[in-house]
């Protein structure tokens, strides 16, 4: 009798766990949020470089084309390179800095 009871219990457990997996019963834990994009140090290192470079590339492009348009070479280029550096640092800060809590 006790053996049968044990088997019935295990069947019950298996059934309810299968139902939980299928989302038919309320799951014990909330949905697991995987916010890990690529958090390996190598990935972050490569991203940092790319973010900085791309911000400066954009800034140079804007500065250079504004200069060509307004005939102010090389004034705006210099300004925008500085801004681009700041934007690159901002990008990196967003990447590695403290994250605001996700909703």
């Amino acid at each position: 009798m006790s053996e049968e009871q044990g088997q019935k219990g295990s069947f019950e457990e298996r059934l309810s766990s299968a139902r939980r997996r299928q989302g038919l019963e309320g799951a014990a834990d909330g949905s697991t949020k995987s916010g890990a994009a690529d958090n390996s140090s190598l990935g972050v290192g490569l991203r940092v470089g790319v973010e900085l470079v791309s911000a400066i590339v954009v800034a140079v492009a804007i500065g250079w084309s504004l200069d060509t348009w307004l005939h102010t070479k090389p004034l705006l280029l210099i300004v925008f390179v500085l801004l681009g550096g700041a934007a690159g640092v901002a990008n990196i800060w967003r990447l590695v800095g403290p994250k605001p809590p996700k909703k």
Binding site: F11, E12, L15, A18, R19, Q22, L24
Partner: peptide, 16 residues
């Protein structure tokens, strides 16, 4: 598939 499995599980539940 999800509905089949859900149906099967429901049947198992009912049978139990």
């Amino acid at each position: 598939r999800a509905s089949t499995i859900a149906g099967d599980l429901q049947a198992a539940q009912t049978a139990k």
